[in-house]
Write a protein that binds this DNA or RNA. Sequence first.
DNA 1: TTTCATTACTTAGGATTCCTAACTATTTGG
DNA 2: CCAAATAGTTAGGAATCCTAAGTAATGAAA
Lengths: 208, 208
Amino acid sequence: MKAFDPKQRHTTSGQITIALYRIAQAIEYAFRQRSKEVHLSPAQIQALLFLKNARTHAHTITGLANRLGVTLATSSDVVDALEHKRLVERAPLPDDQRVVTLTLTPQGERQAEELENVLDEIEIAVDSLPDAEKTALLHATQAIVRRLQSAGYVRVYEMCWGCQFFRRNAHPDNPQAPHHCAFMDAPLPEADTYRECPDFVPAEIERG
Amino acid sequence: MKAFDPKQRHTTSGQITIALYRIAQAIEYAFRQRSKEVHLSPAQIQALLFLKNARTHAHTITGLANRLGVTLATSSDVVDALEHKRLVERAPLPDDQRVVTLTLTPQGERQAEELENVLDEIEIAVDSLPDAEKTALLHATQAIVRRLQSAGYVRVYEMCWGCQFFRRNAHPDNPQAPHHCAFMDAPLPEADTYRECPDFVPAEIERG
DNA sequence: TTTCATTACTTAGGATTCCTAACTATTTGG
DNA sequence: CCAAATAGTTAGGAATCCTAAGTAATGAAA
């Protein structure tokens, strides 16, 4: 496969890949633009958003490294910068003195909230599609994300998949909500299962 | 809009935006991984791919800057690095001594070719979708790219749209190929119009 | 044709990202 | 209790990315 070679770009998958690449460029660009206004780097913005939205137990150097897809050293660098700007604070975890917990300061909190719309321009572009296309697009992109996640290319925090309380396909005859959340004890629509969940608890690792 | 706030992530557009964000992360990750193997930075890889696949007249510092979505200074930096590695050469354009043309050295050419599959992992994920979904996905992502392009978030080189030879919707009754290419004098399927075209010539700028 | 604005790029300086490698400290597992 | 594993930090280095301040070369107008 050579998605970048226009002469070989006859396959649908190749063309889609290039389109996704371009969207990725636009997303980077959006972060960089916002970056300039706020005097925060793209990595710092993403770190703040992570700390605001992910479960507390993930608020560590390692958690951030996973989320950003970088090494521990880089994660530590980013936190250094944010700590310097008094947006984040480090503290050892009482239970395990090796792990450093990260907390947003009040200013950090405010800053993070202000940044949650970084991708508005993307969302606007998406929103301009007809509803039917949006439904299809949601389904397809989420399927891609799932694949990429299992290939180790992204870390998706807080999805129901992988949650201890998630019962996959517990209602096979309910197309509206085929899954089940044992925490809320309620049927779960497909679309909900890919969102960050406040009640998420990691499932036990399967044993061979 | 606050696509990053899970509590507000009830809209389809918001969820799609997050999925696209995650795919973007995976794409960056793919570049970074490859980066390590090849001793080339992600920006350098993209520059090589640009030089291999874009029209020659775009092979300048400015052309690269537009393509990467960075400033001229950054574009110059990247070329410095590539020149150092003997993958690219600078030369003044005879017609206009201000502009610097960029050419791949033979090694640069080889290197670029080797890199064209950087996004294989993404393409594999895309390819795992059923055909019907792929068609829908192609359509939707290209529509998004077009929007983002007109908002100035990405620069797409070499598409028929904006080409001097492109006749939009010249065959409204031919759903298979509604457009027309005046260079090839042939009907043009929608899908073809978003590809890099070897015969692309920029259209005249419209006058108010 | 002289001059002024524009265009294409470069340079300098600075914050940050991102990595690898080596190291410290803590916890866990025989 | 000690070795191995885990969580982070530090150092060192290449590169990205920016702004601001140049330098040529070109173009347009007076």
